[in-house]
């Protein structure tokens, strides 16, 4: 909301100017980053990397030699390093409703986390609409699904345009659309959809902690709030998240 208002003002003010500047940022110490997922469709995967200084290029050192284990009600699924910093287990396909525990041992430290895979909400279809927004009309995709009764359902959407992941994601809960059909649009901050593009949407049903993690991450990244590292449920002080979520993909061609 706020972002929309601010951008409206910027558009209309026409007085602003942007320039690249040098900011002297002290290098923070390198931190472990864990990105761990269990899904109901594909295998479990954990990537471990490290943060770098702001002035570095966007290449992140991978962390090898970790012991990674995910357990489901006492059953252990060890993950093996399939390529540098990426650990996976092909036999671990998640079951909605189950609780998963992650344990990572690396560089003499232990990190653990828990996530509950929510029950799957079915993505019915993808609708397309042309919105008149600002100076231009833009295409938006509207995923349609039926939110189940009761509060506490959390959704995340990832958009891929012509096989390229769009650098923005959407998370919301069922506060506004509860127990009803949702067609909330995925509005892009910089619109990039054109006629004849093929768009793939991945819909994830995520748990509350992951929802809060991504909401906070989004707020921090787009200057809407005082930035801070989003709180995650990983003990031991690593960045990143552990999410057990359902996943479903659908494609649509813009025409």
């Amino acid at each position: 909301m706020k972002q929309v208002l601010i951008s409206i003002f910027f558009i209309t003010a026409l007085l602003g100017c942007k320039k690249e500047i040098n900011v002297d940022l002290p290098n923070a110490s390198q931190q472990i980053v864990i990105e761990a997922t269990v899904t109901n469709a594909t295998y479990a995967q954990v990537t471990i990397s490290k943060s770098v200084a702001f002035s570095n290029s966007n290449t992140y050192p991978t962390v090898s030699g970790a012991t990674v284990n995910i357990s489901d009600n006492g059953v252990n699924y060890p993950l093996t390093e399939s390529k540098a910093g990426t650990y996976s287990n092909n036999s671990l396909i998640g079951v909605p409703g189950h609780t998963y525990n992650l344990l990572v041992k690396v560089e003499g430290k232990e990190y653990s986390s828990t996530s509950i895979m929510p029950l799957q909400v079915h993505l019915d279809t993808l609708l397309l609409e042309k919105l008149f927004w600002g100076h231009e009309s833009v295409w938006v995709v509207k995923p349609q699904y039926s939110d189940p009764a009761g509060f506490g359902h959390y959704y995340m959407f990832i958009e891929t345009i012509n096989s390229k992941q769009f650098p923005q994601f959407w998370v919301w809960d069922d506060r506004i659309v509860n127990n009803s059909i949702s067609t909330i649009p995925l509005i892009q901050s910089d619109s990039t959809i054109n006629v004849n593009d093929t768009i793939e949407i991945e819909m994830r049903c995520i748990d509350r902690n992951v929802f809060r993690y991504f909401t906070a991450l989004q707020g921090s990244q787009n200057n809407a709030t005082t930035p801070a590292n989003p709180e995650n449920e990983i003990t031991g002080g690593a960045l990143g998240y552990f999410s057990a979520h359902t996943t479903q993909r659908k494609k649509v061609k813009v025409q």
Binding site: S49, L217, Y241
Partner: peptide, 24 residues
């Protein structure tokens, strides 16, 4: 204000890490 102390990658995107609130 709070400026990034570093950066990392999550969900195939660059994400900034922060150390101290309003330390800049």
């Amino acid at each position: 204000v709070t400026f990034p102390g570093g950066k990392y990658r999550v969900n195939n995107q660059t994400v900034f890490s922060y150390t101290e609130r309003n330390g800049h």
